[in-house]
Amino acid sequence: MTQGQIFSSNEFAPFLDRLADAASAAIMPHFRQGFAVDNKWKTGFDPVTIADRNGETAMRALINSTYPGHGILGEEHGGENLDAEHVWVLDPIDGTRAFITGLPTWGSLIGLRTSGTASLGMMVQPYIGERFGGDCHQAWYNGPLGTRTLASRACDRLEEATIFTTTPALFNDTERAAYDRIEDTVQLARYGTDCYAYCMVAAGHGDAVIEAGLQAYDIVALVPIIEGAGGVVTTWTGGSPCEGGQIVASGDPRLHDILLKELARTP
């Protein structure tokens, strides 16, 4: 893929595209091809494939050769040098269920945590050829529609909002009750979008994402994109999203305040 304009002054921003290239080269030979699917869980289903493992291996190798003093936290191969100032947080395929069923709604997540705070991130979808990046101050897109900055849209009423979640089945009973109250009020709810949901909020095509049970590698890369486009990402209680957990992301800070109140409300 031809690298588009980088809108960030962050010194590590150009490295995002190098990592994206490495991950894509390792993953794409397996997409919509025959491959074994392993299950990480003894009960339930959490799939992982050779593409997940190879994608992360490729990114880790590039990080270690380019920035040997940096740390790495990855979904497939764990953590190393996690007390470093700069720690790369990697999810080679966010949306493995989509990947194994041939749906192009998965993405590679490449995040950078600086002194414990998400500072830089990119979501890469190599089949479609899209990249969404951000540094908490600006966000950008490069893909079939060209290269452009991203800006979230205004929405300050639940009744006018479009929200996303991967699936309500991932919520526990208390979380599901809170989510259902919100879904019953909003204009539109969409499921099954994984990391793409956050990028659509940053691009102004939706208004919020509500999730639970996330890990750091599920969200760190997406925070700088949302924030760079003018949005907000926190836990359901308004805390830092960098360790995962219950996450809500909104394109409009006014809507975010409303969602936090609704998520905290007891029946």
Rank of each mutant, 00 (worst) to 15 (best):
I6M: 06
N10Q: 08
A13M: 07
P14C: 09
P14Q: 04
L16N: 04
D17V: 11
D17E: 10
D17H: 14
R18W: 00
R18F: 01
L19K: 03
D21A: 15
D21V: 13
D21Q: 14
A23Y: 02
S24V: 04
A25D: 10
I27E: 01
I27Q: 01
I27W: 00
M28Q: 06
P29G: 04
R32D: 07
Q33R: 13
Q33D: 02
G34F: 02
G34Q: 13
A36Y: 02
V37Q: 05
N39F: 06
N39C: 07
N39L: 06
K40F: 03
W41P: 00
W41R: 15
K42W: 00
K42V: 13
K42I: 10
K42P: 03
T43V: 15
G44W: 08
F45C: 04
D46G: 15
P47M: 04
P47E: 05
P47C: 08
V48M: 08
V48A: 07
T49Q: 02
I50W: 00
A51N: 02
A51M: 03
R53T: 06
R53V: 11
R53P: 00
R53Q: 12
G55S: 09
G55I: 02
E56A: 11
A58S: 13
A58F: 05
M59N: 05
M59A: 13
R60S: 13
L62C: 08
N64W: 06
N64P: 00
S65Y: 04
T66Y: 10
P68Y: 06
H70Y: 08
H70N: 14
G71K: 10
G71M: 10
L73C: 03
E75S: 09
E76G: 05
H77Y: 08
H77I: 12
H77L: 15
E80F: 03
N81H: 11
L82F: 05
L82W: 01
A84K: 10
E85H: 11
W88T: 08
W88D: 03
V89D: 00
